[in-house]
Computed example of a mutant assay.
Amino acid sequence: MKKMILILVLGVMLVNCNSKSVPKPDNLIGEDEMVDILYDLYVINAIRLNNSTYLKEQNSTPAKYIYQKYKIDSLQFIQSDHYYAADIDDYEKLHQRVTKRIERNKATIDSLIAKTPPEKRQPPRVDKVQETQFKLRDSLREKRLLREKTFSDSTRN
């Protein structure tokens, strides 16, 4: 009897694990378009991390840009992403396609950079926030060094 119950419980668990628990949304974004969206999001986030002033100058956020470019809304994107993420194997394949595209484009960009003469390459810009943070850290460092010097001088006397 215990074996029968164990087999029944395992069978129910196996059936439930293999079925998709997330229903397919009515306005599902196709896989190819989802790859394009994820690619653009990765590229935009890389730009934001390396040169945040560019996005500030454009007065845009990554999400706003994606929604406008692909004519979707946040709910449609979230529902589609949630649907694809429900099947981890398919979701991993989707991300592998994005990664391959990034690597392919990175090789092209690297070759273009290599062809550009060094004097024409633009050095990375430091945005105002980073510059302010650096100055603050530098001034705090100076104060700390001055305090340590003062303390060490007072202990010697």
Rank of each mutant, 00 (worst) to 15 (best):
A107D: 08
L75W: 00
S80R: 02
H95R: 15
I7H: 06
E119K: 13
P62D: 05
S52E: 15
I5P: 00
K20A: 07
S52Y: 05
P123R: 07
D26F: 02
D89R: 14
I109H: 03
P118R: 06
E148V: 09
S21T: 13
K135C: 03
N157E: 11
K100F: 07
E148A: 09
V98E: 00
P118W: 00
Q76A: 09
K69A: 11
F151M: 06
S111K: 12
D110A: 14
Q58H: 07
L14F: 15
Y65S: 12
L136G: 00
I109D: 01
K24Y: 05
D32Y: 06
A85Q: 14
R48M: 12
N157K: 15
I47W: 01
I7W: 03
Y65H: 10
Q79P: 01
L10H: 03
I29P: 00
Q133R: 10
T132C: 05
A63W: 02
K143H: 06
E131Q: 10
M13C: 14
Y39W: 04
R144S: 08
K135Q: 15
Q76D: 08
I102G: 02
P124G: 02
D32M: 08
R147Y: 13
M4Q: 11
N18A: 13
L112G: 00
I109C: 07
F77N: 02
K143G: 00
T155V: 05
A63E: 13
Y70I: 03
Y83H: 08
Y54R: 04
A63Q: 10
N157V: 11
R141K: 12
R147A: 12
N157I: 10
I7F: 10
P118D: 09
I66T: 05
F134Q: 05
M34T: 08
D36Y: 01
P117K: 11
D127P: 01
S60G: 01
E31R: 15
L28R: 06
N45G: 04
